[in-house]
Structure formats: structure tokens, C-alpha cells
Design a protein around this nucleic acid. Structure first.
Length: 591
RNA sequence: GGGGGCGUGGUGUAGCGGUUAACAUGCGGCCCUGUCAAGGCCGAGACCGCGGGUUCGAAUCCCGUCGCUCCCGCCA
């Protein structure tokens, strides 16, 4: 036995006991005579006291930060006035009788005993040291509690956890697949699942009724702060449910979870707001709005119907819109500040940015001389803008105006600190379109995925107006992030086949790629639906972390590399030969 | 594929045309019996990511390149 208890658990009730502890030297304070060490394990730290008169305590003085020590000693109350109220163990200390260095340590590449910014390269290369830091330990524990809560809660709700294969089949559409070559089937590849979508539906056909899984998913796309090539979803599926059955289940889960895992986080509203896809786009310019603050988008096209401003006039003539947001208290922005906003807007795809500043000295801004006082009055009336506010206009096609103003809205959220960190603004986005027109390939794509049930009342529009068909898909959003995506699924072969056809798949393709799904639907598939909340993003928000790498034990960097193990790395010739693979490296670009 | 930001001792930063390249922390040594970010003294440690250019002179300005990061594209 290396230890009799954990460091962080020592309390006055242990006074007089002889204990053995094992852990890392968190800090050392050598006073020449008496020496103190804060000994750390996962549970916390406790002060160890080494007296010069005790021969067994000698090692205390030789030890350095992050050495691994085993210490045996007596628990005693700290001397009067020497208590540390900042430590849970601060009323007691352990007086060393014996101390052994289980393993010394070289000086670390960075300090782990305080929360200090360290270059992420270095952190990731020495991730096992980075994870020693209190912040990371806290995140790992929080993540564990979240997953534990999910398992317990869903178990009580009658769900069973089923594992599905990691080696599966490539699917057309969607994200790029990670492929795994087959040794025994030359030229054939497994794909790592982008999600267990098909498998969980087949579990419904199997009569599992309520399934869930803490599922690893893989997508070979470029990374972002909230995107890793492999990530974890709470994947769940339910039989004999309508949309609101799924929504209520999930809403109940997260509403119950919050006070248990993150009591300082508050729900914005209960029940959660429900917005249609169209409404979300109109009011916030995005289908994943941050509802913690206002600054909504206004369509003011009608106000400028007969505008003398050519930019506005031309936009309206070509079918575009004029939308705006009101930035509170920023009317006095300088020319440079406005220019910076304009370049930001251009980066988002807008042609430019028109501004109107309602200052104490009157109306200013780049659009001032083109906007009449009647139009300004109508704007004030429509948007509630008042003195001191800055109105930002984007005149463009609706998608561009929405995207640009949505990005500006988030920019000001951060700049003006409009969103409360401890509010979780969960909301549902519903009534998604079934299809989106793919301009590049001149075909219809599934807006959600091809297994989503279209609204039955819209089925007649299949051949005439696919773009107007709504689906039974839904997203869960929170604080500007898409936290989950789900839908009621198709359980009828005829509808599923028709969807595949509309997506441009040939009959032979359908059979080859999805024959197993279609066949399954012929053997009594129950109506079913589900959803898949992202665990990484959820924990990121709960932990107040700026990106999901902070809540993943061993994440990859933006170039999808593991800097610790240096993966990916080349395969040996022997490995490649076994897999019947020849590597052809990209040719160097000629300069 | 494109755009922005960053790159200076181990770590975190300062310096932004002429400095023995500064400070903190960490590291090594010495002193110190009640500290808890312990303290004091001394010391070692960076050719300023790399390559080229401008200049009498470059960490500093310019170009290129590499790395990291944020964003756009992409992510059914």
C-alpha cells in the first residue's frame, strides 16, 4: 500500500492519526531549519512539515518541485495563527516521520503549480504535464460528471447503451470520411463513422426502443476552436416518438443536469425558447443564435423603398435586402473604428457597411447624407435606436446580410460584453428546410441528412418545389453554438427511396450504399427519431473554456496533428505492402 | 485554398533603427525554524523562429518561408 489516504481529504478529524500519503511536490518552502512541502494528488494539496530533528525527514529538503514522494507522518493541528483558510486542508498539517522519493523529476518545461498561459505547442507536446494543472484536472472531472449524469439519467428513463462499430462503411454526402484500409480485402476501405446514424436507426428496427451511446465521431474537415477531427456525441434514438417527445426528453436531461454539474450556471428560460429556422435567421441572421443578449437584426428594406441612396436602391432592385443592427453607445466611433468594422464586414462577404451614428450633435455616419430625416425617424421607430447608438446597415442578398450582421453581432457581444458568462441560453431551432440548393453542383442537398422525415403534408411539393419542403429536423443551440442536431427519421421505404432519388443518387448507387437501410424498413421499422448533443462543446461552455481542446484529454492541433505522439506519421513499407497501398506524395508546386 | 494575429533565456513578457537585449518566474549555489506565490544574497541561461534584403548599423523596417492560432471556404 502506497498510501492510507488522499492529501486533499485531511481534516481536523484526522488529528492524531498516523497517515501515509503519496503525491507530487506542488511547492516547497525551505526555511533552513523547518521545511514545508505542499504535497499534491488528484484530491488537492496538504502541507507537509519536515523538522531538522527527524532523520527520516531529510528527503524533504532534497526534493524538488514535481518529484513524486511517499510521506508517512502524524496529522496535527497547525499552530495558532499558522492556519491557511484558503486551503480545505488548511487547519492541519502532516509532520514527517519518513519520506521516500518514489521518483525524482527534471525541471518541467513549464510550471504546473499555477495557472499561467503557456504556448499551446508546448502544452500539447507535454500534455501529460499540462493535465496536471488544476484547471485541466477540473475540466476532466467536470466532463466525467457530465457523462456520468447522462448515463444515470438516461438509464432511469429506460434507455440502454449500445456500442456500435468504429470500422464501418463510407457514406456519400456529408463530411469527408476517415478511411481505414482493409488488409484482407485489397482495395477496400472501412470508414470511421461521422456519427452512428444508420446504426442507431437499425437498433430501432431491432426493437431496442430507447438507445444511447457516448459515441466517438470522426470527420475529416478543417478544424476550428469548436471542431476536432474526432469528437464525442451523446447519440440517442427513440422509437414511437414525435418531435416534441424527443425535445422534452433532452430538455429534461439538460435542465436536470445543470444544477448538479455546474450549479453556478443558470438557464436563460424554462421551458426553452423554440424558434423556427426562418425566424432565427430573420432576427439573428444565423440558425445558432446567442440568445443571451438582444441586438436583433431588423429588415428595413421597406423604409428605404424609395431611397435616394444608390447602394440601397440597387440592392433592392436586384432582389436584395437592407438589414441593420443597433450598436448601443457606439455613436462616437472614430473613422478608423468604423473602417475596421467595414473590413470585418467585407471579410464576412458583404460589399460594404453603411453606418448611421445618432450623436448628441445630430446624425452622422457614412450613410448620413443619403438618408432623409423621415427615414431616420422611421428607423428609430422600428429599431428603438436612440441617442448615442450606432446603426450598421448591410445591403446585400439576404444570406450575405444575415451572415455579416450575425458576425458583427457576435463581435459586439464580445467587445461590449453583452452576454453573461453564467447564463446557458438553451433554445430549440425547428422547422428546417428539407433541402438546400447546391449552387456548385447544381443539385439538391439534404439540409440535415437524407434520413430526415419530410413534413408529410409537404410531400406533394416533391416534384414541383423541393426548396419549400420543411422537415422534422431540430437543432439544440446554446450561447451561439450548435449543441445538438436531430430529427424524426424516415421509417418507410418508399419515402426514403424518393429522397435518395431527389438527392441525385442513381438507383444502383442507392442499392449499393443504402440497400441495407431500405431493406430494413421493409421488415417493420417503427416510427423513430433522435438527436445527438455534442459533449465537447457542452463541457466547454460549462467549464468557461474558449475552445474544446481544453476539455479533451489529448486533442489535436489545428493541423490535425497530435504533437505529443507526433501523429499522423508515415507507415512502413511493410505495412503499406500488407495493405496493398502505394503512396503517391503531392508534387512540389513549381515557383 | 484564402485572410488576420503571434513567434525574444526553460516558461510568461518588455524592448519596435544604435541597449553589456530588460523584467518576472523557473534553474544552480549560499543564508534562514512557521511558511503557504515564503524571504534574502550570488550566479548561469536568449546570436530575438528560419532565409534573404534595405541601412554605416536590424530583435526592431521590407520580402519570402516555417510553425502556432483565430476566421472564411469546408463541416449531410
Amino acid at each position: 500500500m502506497y498510501r492510507t489516504m488522499y492529501c486533499g481529504e485531511l481534516r481536523p478529524s484526522h488529528i492524531g492519526q498516523k497517515v501515509t500519503l503519496a503525491g507530487w511536490v506542488h511547492r516547497q518552502r525551505d526555511h533552513g531549519g523547518v521545511t514545508f512541502i505542499d504535497l499534491r494528488d488528484r484530491s488537492g494539496v496538504v502541507q507537509i512539515v519536515g523538522n531538522p530533528e527527524v532523520p527520516g525527514a531529510a528527503m524533504i529538503r532534497e526534493a524538488r518541485v514535481e518529484w513524486v514522494l511517499q510521506v508517512t507522518g502524524m496529522v496535527r493541528r497547525r499552530p495558532e495563527g499558522a492556519e491557511n483558510p484558503n486551503l480545505p486542508t488548511g487547519e492541519v498539517e502532516v509532520e514527517v516521520l519518513e519520506c521516500e522519493a518514489l521518483n525524482p523529476a527534471k525541471p518541467l518545461p513549464f510550471v504546473v503549480n499555477k495557472d499561467e498561459d503557456v504556448d499551446e505547442n508546448v502544452r500539447l507536446k507535454y500534455r501529460y504535464l499540462d493535465l496536471r494543472r488544476e484547471r485541466m484536472q477540473r475540466n476532466l472531472i467536470l466532463r466525467h460528471r457530465v457523462v456520468k449524469f447522462i448515463r444515470d439519467y438516461l438509464d432511469q428513463q429506460g434507455f440502454i447503451e449500445v456500442e456500435t462499430p468504429i470500422l464501418f462503411k463510407t457514406t456519400p454526402e456529408g463530411a469527408r470520411d476517415y478511411l481505414v484500409p482493409s488488409r484482407v480485402h485489397p482495395g477496400c476501405f472501412y470508414a470511421l463513422p461521422q456519427s452512428p446514424q444508420q446504426l442507431k436507426q437499425l437498433l430501432m428496427v431491432a426493437g431496442v426502443d430507447r438507445y444511447f451511446q457516448i459515441a466517438r465521431c470522426f470527420r475529416d474537415e478543417d478544424l476550428r476552436g469548436d471542431r476536432q477531427p474526432e469528437f464525442t456525441q451523446l447519440d440517442l434514438e427513440m422509437s414511437f416518438v414525435h418531435r416534441d417527445d424527443v425535445l422534452n426528453m433532452v430538455e429534461g436531461l439538460f435542465t436536470a443536469m445543470l444544477p448538479v454539474v455546474a450549479p453556478h450556471k443558470k438557464l436563460l428560460a424554462s421551458p426553452w425558447p423554440k424558434l423556427s429556422y426562418t425566424e432565427a435567421l430573420e432576427r439573428f441572421g444565423t440558425d445558432k443564435p446567442d440568445l443571451r443578449f438582444g441586438m436583433e437584426l431588423y429588415d428595413v428594406s421597406d423604409i428605404f423603398a424609395s431611397s435616394g441612396f444608390m447602394v440601397f436602391q440597387n440592392t433592392l432592385k436586384t432582389g436584395g435586402v437592407i438589414k441593420c443592427i443597433v450598436v448601443p453607445g457606439c455613436a462616437e466611433y472614430t473613422r478608423k473604428e468604423v473602417d475596421d468594422l467595414t473590413s470585418f464586414a467585407r471579410e464576412q462577404g458583404a460589399k460594404g457597411l453603411a453606418t448611421l451614428a445618432l450623436t448628441a450633435e445630430g446624425v452622422k455616419g457614412t450613410a448620413q447624407k443619403f438618408i432623409t430625416s423621415e427615414e431616420t425617424a422611421a428607423l428609430r421607430e422600428r429599431t428603438g435606436a436612440g441617442e448615442g447608438d450606432l446603426i450598421l446597415f448591410v445591403a446585400d442578398q439576404k444570406t450575405v446580410a444575415n451572415k455579416t450582421l450575425s458576425a458583427l453581432r457576435l463581435l459586439f457581444r464580445d467587445r461590449l460584453q453583452l452576454a453573461d458568462r453564467n447564463t446557458m441560453a438553451f433554445a430549440w431551432i425547428v422547422d428546417f428546410p428539407m433541402f438546400e440548393w447546391n449552387e456548385e453542383e447544381q443539385k439538391w442537398d439534404a439540409a440535415h441528412h437524407p434520413f430526415t422525415m419530410p413534413r408529410l403534408e409537404d410531400l406533394s411539393k416533391f416534384d414541383t418545389d423541393p426548396g419549400s419542403i420543411l422537415s422534422d429536423a431540430y437543432d439544440m443551440v446554446c450561447n451561439g453554438y450548435e449543441m445538438a442536431s436531430g430529427s424524426i427519421r424516415i421509417h418507410r421505404r418508399d419515402i426514403q427511396f424518393k429522397i435518395f432519388q431527389l438527392l441525385g443518387l442513381k438507383e444502383a448507387d442507392i442499392q449499393q450504399k443504402f440497400g441495407h437501410m431500405l431493406e430494413a424498413f421493409e421488415y417493420g421499422a417503427p416510427p423513430h427519431g433522435g438527436i445527438a448533443p455534442g459533449i465537447d462543446r457542452l463541457v466547454m461552455l460549462l467549464a468557461d473554456e474558449p475552445n474544446i481542446r481544453e476539455v479533451i484529454a489529448f486533442p489535436k492541433n489545428q493541423a490535425a496533428r497530435d504533437l505529443m505522439a507526433d501523429a499522423p506519421s508515415p507507415a512502413t513499407d511493410k505495412q503499406l505492402a500488407e495493405l496493398h497501398i502505394r503512396v503517391e506524395l503531392p508534387k512540389e508546386e513549381q515557383g
